[in-house]
């Protein structure tokens, strides 16, 4: 059996390679979401009439989803704490709880979108709705991606393997939560 050596530590940065990589990913994510949010804010300020369209978004469901994501962030950071103790099984359980949070978020979102589309508000209904579906859609895609990666990390953590990945996927998940923290007031509250 051949042994393959993998560099797990960046000496110059004094940090694990995986964690450095996840921060690089997040920096590119800032540019992606930043571009969407900045252009939305610019157009929103230039179009006061968008407030009438924004009035149709459901602030109750938006707030519920914020609570769900904040709670899933708690379970993600608790999973990290469990991994630091070397308790892979608990870390895996908490990661699966986080995935459940993501699933609840998506279910609520799908109900919300179904209602809005039935009401006639689609991607092409106007500038506000274009941004609404694009921003929330790109965010939902990140939630789905995070859930998939987390399921994989949980499967290895359950065997007490590769526990450092628990923190890395957690950092990603907190970022997804952080983006929603800004989407909530922008899309649901500012009317």
């Amino acid at each position: 059996m051949s042994t393959k050596t993998i560099a797990t530590q960046r000496a110059a940065m004094n940090m694990p390679t995986g964690r450095l990589a996840i921060w690089w990913v997040l920096m590119s994510e800032i540019v992606i979401f930043g571009g969407i949010l900045v252009s939305y804010v610019l157009h929103r300020l230039a179009h006061p009439e968008w407030a009438e369209q924004a009035a149709y978004t459901n602030v109750h469901l938006g707030a519920t989803n914020t609570l769900v994501l904040l709670s899933s962030s708690l379970s993600a950071v608790l999973a990290h704490a469990a991994a630091e103790r070397g308790d892979g099984k608990r870390a895996a359980f908490l990661l699966r709880l986080t995935i459940l949070g993501g699933l609840i978020f998506l279910i609520i979102k799908s109900f919300e979108w179904t209602h809005e589309i039935h009401e006639g508000f689609t991607l092409q209904s106007g500038g506000f709705w274009s941004y609404y579906y694009t921003a929330a859609g790109v965010h939902a895609f990140h939630v789905i991606a995070g859930m998939c990666i987390m399921a994989w990390v949980a499967s290895t953590a359950a065997k007490n393997q590769e526990l450092h990945r628990v923190e890395n996927v957690g950092i990603y998940w907190h970022f997804v939560d952080l983006v929603w923290i800004f989407l909530f007031p922008l899309l649901y509250i500012a009317k």
């Binding site: 393959k4 993998i6 070397g86």
Partner: peptide, 11 residues
């Protein structure tokens, strides 16, 4: 087989 430790970041 990988040579990296089980839980880097914990030492």
């Amino acid at each position: 087989m990988t040579a990296h430790p089980q839980a880097p970041g914990h030492g």
